[in-house]
Structures are given as C-alpha cells and as structure tokens.
C-alpha cells in the first residue's frame, strides 16, 4: 500500500497515458554512459552479425546506406525515469539485416565500440520493432548519442538500444550484458516497469 506524500499533487501532464509507470516526460535529450564516448570514425565503422554457427555478415557505412532506409518516429524510455516522445531517426530495420540469415538462435548479445554490451531476445529485434540508426532529428548521430551508428529498440528501456554498435552475436542461450550483470533487469519492459533484477 503506497503511502501518500502529504501535499504532493503532481502535474496534469504526469498522468499522460502514453507514459509508462514511474516515468516523466522530458523535452531534453539526457545522455547516460558508463565512461568516455568512443569517437569512431564513420569511415572505419562496421557492424558484424555472427550466427550461432559462426557465419558472419558485415556492413560498413556504405553498405548500410545502400540498404532500404526507414524513418522511425518513436517514444523512448530511459530507466533513469525520463521519457522522450516523438524522437525521429533514420536507419535500417533489423528485419532487413536479418533477412536471409539462417539461425535457430533465440537471443542476441550486442557489443559496442568501447566495450559496452547488452542482451535481448532475438524476437525483439524482429517485426519492425528495432533498427540500426545513423541519424537523429535529420542530422548524423553524434558520439554522445551513440554515433556513428546505434541500435534503436524503443519498446524496451533505452539501455538496450546500445550506442556505438559493433557486433550482433546470435546465441542459443541468454548471456547477460553490462547493466544486466550490474543489477538491472534482463528484459527491461518499461510498461511492466522491469527496471532492476527481480522486478
């Protein structure tokens, strides 16, 4: 039974049904990172997909730009409580990258330049729900926001949308990533408020 905070009313905007529980809306774009932002030369960036059988596909910037581009406009939710509505990005759907890849894997471990990792069920990267993006708000993605290329999986807390993405490893068994081994939830659904282990 929650206790009532005497005299606290909240804001009308706080009751927005588009806000997941416990979140508040910001128009700012805060940055969360664990260390220095890697400055990756866009011309030397590449993304490698590795299947559980060890087969690899690699895209450099030109190869990524040659694929069909999408412009998702989505709400994003950070586990530190802020949500930002209507963010617009440009990039390639994971459906496109995974098209033709033969795999029986159920999980993905995402690795970034700089050493960051995170894990997701492979299913969450399919169905028009995940992208690798290289533009935010019509401009090239800056290093502090994950440029040159980051993952975008807006239906999960934003730490799953790995910045500076470098590798997608398909796995038959789940392997927790950086925050997932540091107390945060394995899946991270904002609508079920899965912030920390045990939520």
């Amino acid at each position: 039974m929650p206790i009532i905070s005497k005299g606290f009313r909240g804001r009308p905007g706080g009751r927005d049904p588009e806000l997941p529980p416990g979140q508040y809306r910001t128009t700012d774009f805060p940055v969360l990172s664990t260390g220095p932002s890697p400055h990756v030369d866009p011309d030397r960036w590449s993304l490698t997909l590795v299947t559980e059988a060890g087969e690899t596909s690699t895209w450099d910037r030109q190869a990524l730009l040659a694929l069909p581009q999408e412009r998702p406009t989505v709400d994003i939710h950070c586990v530190t409580k802020w949500s930002k509505f209507g963010t617009s990005w440009r990039g390639v759907s994971l459906d496109t990258l995974l098209d033709g890849v033969s795999t029986a894997a159920s999980f993905v471990k995402v690795a970034s330049y700089g050493g960051y990792t995170t894990n997701l069920p492979l299913e969450d990267l399919r169905g028009g729900r995940a992208w690798v993006v290289h533009e935010f708000d019509g401009r090239p993605l800056t290093p502090e926001h994950g440029g040159p290329v980051r993952l975008l999986v807006p239906h999960l807390y934003f730490w799953k949308s790995a910045k500076w993405v470098r590798e997608l490893q398909l796995l038959t068994q789940d392997e927790p990533g950086f925050w997932e081994t540091n107390g945060y939830h394995d899946y991270g659904d904002p609508w079920r408020e899965q912030r920390y282990q045990g939520d």
Binding site: G10, G14, G22, Y24, T80, K81
Partner: peptide
C-alpha cells in the same frame, strides 16, 4: 536510489 511520490488521488511518479 529511486524516490516515489504518491498524490492522494493515487497518481505517483519517480526520480533517481
């Protein structure tokens, strides 16, 4: 840590 405030109409919000 996370702080949660709850209004008397049941609305609540959190901050870290």
């Amino acid at each position: 840590l996370d702080v949660r405030l709850t209004a008397d109409d049941g609305y609540s919000t959190q901050r870290s």
